[in-house]
Design a protein around this nucleic acid. Structure first.
Length: 277
DNA sequence: AAAACACCCTGCCTGC
DNA sequence: TGCAGGCAGGGTGTTT
């Protein structure tokens, strides 16, 4: 479900509720999550119980809850929301909603809860998560200061459609289907353009990506179906989308009806007038 | 090595 | 009202 702006929104709403809290207990449903992997409850307990939350950060679409003991960093709780993952902070006595898979009890009397109906999300805790392949293979964060020249060189070496290129988290990390469609529209690049042919547009494309993501964050995320932040609030970015989900509506730049195609099994929205092959 | 595809899972919406 | 089919913003492993 969530892409970079949604994850950033969750992190921002989570941070004030978690930092300074000590984790007292951990529970998990035992059901398998992403790739049929179960949460390693023993490792989770070892890393979390008695630890204090020092910071809450984001790397691409991952949430990092930094743990410390006696003021020293001792580990990280790593969370990926997948498609339908949600984090909520609720009173300990509040009933556990359906699809609750992990619960961390906090010193203040609340619980952090991870819910995920489709179970495409992932949760783990470890002393050092940075060497894990999940994080190690990520490309530069899409909101980091990106090197336009390096990005252009990456484009030049790939024949994949530009949409696939941008969705590949090893190239640039944090974009998903919605924001890729939006960024390509802003940059006037057809989604099926071979990456190497978009090389000359590397800088405008990076600018479009940044604008798209910053707008998404300013609007607290896109709530297309059911995205909500850690307080249960939906974002308002749906209204700001220019092409995604707008099949048949006139392009806001040229009036051509927005088209939908399917690429690699995923919906693509674009304007055939502005985004020429 | 890179690109294309199948797969993981539930919920919701559409059309019959 | 029920049911089948299609669709969904994620990543990963396997095949080509």
């Amino acid at each position: 479900m969530p892409e970079l702006p949604e994850v950033e929104t969750v992190v921002r709403t989570l941070r004030p509720q978690l930092v300074g809290q000590t984790i007292r207990a951990v529970w998990s449903s035992g059901l398998p999550l992403r790739m049929r992997r179960r949460v390693d409850e023993a490792a989770m307990r070892t890393a979390c119980i008695g630890a204090r939350v020092g910071a809450v950060a984001r790397r691409a679409k991952y949430i990092l809850v930094e743990l410390e003991r006696r003021g020293r960093a001792t580990g990280t709780l790593l969370i990926h929301l997948g498609m339908t993952g949600r984090l909520r902070v609720e009173a300990r006595r509040a009933p556990k909603a359906k699809h609750t898979h992990v619960v961390w009890t906090l010193s203040g009397g609340n619980q952090l809860r991870f819910l995920d109906s489709r179970r495409f999300g992932w949760v783990l805790a470890a002393p050092d998560v940075h060497g894990l392949p999940e994080l190690a293979r990520l490309g530069p964060d899409a909101l980091a200061r990106l090197d336009g020249e390096a990005f252009a060189q990456g484009l030049a070496k790939s024949s994949a459609p530009i949409k696939s290129f941008l969705l590949d988290q090893r190239r640039i990390a944090g974009l998903g289907n919605i924001y890729v469609c939006e960024a390509l529209f802003r940059a006037r690049i057809h989604p099926r353009t071979p990456a190497r042919r978009a090389r000359g547009k590397a800088r405008p494309l990076l600018r479009a990506i940044r604008e798209t993501l910053e707008l998404g964050i300013a609007n607290c995320g896109t709530s297309f179906r059911d995205f909500v932040d850690a307080n249960g609030e939906p974002g308002t970015n749906l209204d700001a989308l220019l092409v995604y989900g707008r099949t048949g509506e006139p392009c806001q730049r040229c009036g051509t009806p927005i088209r939908r195609s399917v690429d690699g099994g995923r919906s693509t929205f674009f304007c055939a007038g502005c985004q020429r092959r």
